[in-house]
Write a protein that binds this DNA or RNA. Structure first.
Lengths: 344, 344
DNA sequence: CTCCATTACGGTAACGTTTCCAATAACAAT
DNA sequence: ATTGTTATTGGAAACGTTACCGTAATGGAG
């Protein structure tokens, strides 16, 4: 079946192509009568404009793209919706584009920008070093949301919103210490290649150090190379390893809430009660954490605020041409029932 | 910053545009020397072709789209990856496109087909009636995977893969009955508008009827209008409602595993033990179900098989021009620890 | 009835690419 | 040298749309 084009519609209606174009884009300079007639034909023949041609021709769109690395991550998933409403509220079109871990985000972003004549973009998730070097060259406003980076390098030169992973890891562990725990296990992500994990680990070490507790390697368990970072499996296997090593601990910091789900299971199978025998603290504050038994105490990332802030930063750049800014949020501790005080 | 085009590259290299085109698409009819020279310039200037122009010009791509309704659904999420590897294995390019519940899937599909010159497509999730009427007109092969439909209408005329929700609902409830239960609660999705829920409900009723157990309305709990179908909240609130009504039951069928998570919590808060006081069976067999405490007994949908089958069906249409086919899978019961035998 | 201002419309050049076709270069065979 | 064959290359048309510009139609004022 041959594809229906704007010319076909024009021919059917006995008008010029520009008139049809005016009709479908409700532009001025067309009488209501012809417009109606054209739209009727459009409906009847199910004509749909070709976006490639449109994007090719148009000098600028009204579209803002959300480019997300790690679409299978439940944490980011919970942010899609908020981004969409926030952006539409400001009158922009919205485009969600997933990039897999193997692709280079900047390449994808560049491609997308050219193809869609993007007005701006928000990069969500993943990790990168010195992104501004290549991103600035694109010439359109962008903001990085929850994009990880190594300890050595800060995001100081880009529009960036997120939390300080080192600091919040420190807070989580400090909380456990305040509750009287000194033997604190850690279930982390991949040992290499995971910047978030590395930073939270740094926070863990600092908290220990500040309270004069020696760092013991046998208590920190990284994800096996073949399991997904921050997944339930990560937690389940992690705890199993800990138990095999006969590591002794009275509390545990898991680097994601999903990890705690696996940890709960492994602990349950070993007959270790939460929080009686072992306290557990999670990270992220995802919806699911509230339904765990016992309710999970966790460091909650203010996702809503982070998306609002990202959009606001982008708008500022877009509308006022303002320079790059940063917005670093605090995580908040949600106390539920998975952490107990340890008496000496 | 002006956008770099193929003409710019051609000018820089002192060659014609067609030569550059040949280089970047590694087509024959170009000497290795010039090709190398061009590619070097391409790298240096970070040239990226404009896909809009490309798609506009090219008569046919090698791309197959996965169009998914309900990207936030954990069940579908677990299928993305498998689709991608399966399709790439066959040598096709892969494109994931999310459509929100408000959009019309067929419109989106048509648009995408025109824009990207799709070779074929797979529709995942959502629900539609008589989709073949409009989809066939597109003129490209497609297959529906786990797309719901009402009881009255079967998918007999489209390429379709999925399970029989009525039958598997029947199986789940029959299993409970075999275990000696007669007072079986049901936590369902939205009362209206959810075809999957409606079919599993029909299965529930049939199982009851066949065993001479009267259907009692107070035991079935639909999702509140403002909560997400099949979510943990759906389960939590559902059980709370049941308990408020002082409904008496010894077992419970939840229409998704996610629902059971909320149900577990509500049961736990009410001091009702699983499976001692109440057995629970779930549906879907998602990864998470294995980590619940106690381990969840659930009807597992063969996701891997369903994606493989979808791709195979599409290939058949693509390569041999075969007519629409159907593939209806059986769910398999995974017995874990959430269902107990009830003694009379 | 004429003139002018306004509104409605049609024609056509771009947008950046691929692909066909023609043109040139290279080189071997006569 | 001449011819033929093949390997490279350049030019230009087309893809479907939008946006500019010019022209025709309309309608009100004089």
């Amino acid at each position: 079946m041959a594809q229906l084009t704007i010319k076909d519609i024009a021919k059917i209606c006995n008008v010029g192509v520009s008139t049809v174009s005016r009709a479908i884009n409700n532009e001025p300079g067309i009488s209501d009568k012809t417009k109606e007639r054209i739209m009727q034909v459009v409906e009847e023949f199910h004509y749909i404009p070709n976006n490639s041609a449109r994007n090719l021709k148009m000098v600028e769109s009204n579209t803002i793209a959300l480019i997300i690395t790690g679409i299978d991550n439940i944490f980011f998933q919970s942010m899609f919706g908020a981004f969409e409403v926030e952006l539409r509220k400001k009158g922009y079109d919205f485009l969600l584009h997933a990039v897999s871990w193997k692709q280079d985000v900047v390449t994808v972003a560049t491609e997308l920008m050219k193809d869609k004549r993007l007005k701006g973009m928000i990069l969500l998730g993943g990790q990168m070093e010195r992104p501004e070097e290549r991103l600035d060259a694109l010439g359109i406003p962008y903001v990085l949301c929850t994009v990880a980076h190594s300890n050595e390098y800060s995001m100081a030169n880009c529009p960036w919103v997120g939390i300080d992973d080192e600091l919040e890891g420190y807070h989580a562990v400090s909380y456990l210490i305040e509750k009287g725990h000194r033997d604190i296990a850690l279930i982390a992500g991949q040992k290499m290649d995971n910047a978030v994990s590395a930073q939270r680990l740094a926070g863990y070490k600092r908290a220990l150090a500040e309270h004069g507790i020696p760092y013991r390697e046998e208590l920190v368990q990284f994800a096996d190379p073949d399991v997904t970072d921050f997944s339930p499996e990560n937690g389940y296997i992690g705890v199993k390893h800990l138990l095999e090593k006969k590591a002794k601990f009275t509390a545990m910091f898991c680097m994601s809430d999903l990890i705690t789900m696996g940890a709960y299971k492994a602990l349950d199978e070993a007959g270790i009660s939460i929080p009686g025998d072992c306290s557990v603290i999670g990270f992220d504050g995802i919806e699911l954490s509230k339904y765990m038994c016992p309710g999970l105490t966790t460091m909650h990332q203010p996702r809503e605020d982070m998306v609002k802030s990202s959009v606001k930063l982008l708008m500022k750049e877009l509308e006022q041409g303002k320079k790059a800014e940063q917005k670093i949020y605090k995580a908040t501790l949600i106390e539920r029932d998975s952490v107990a005080t340890r008496e000496e």
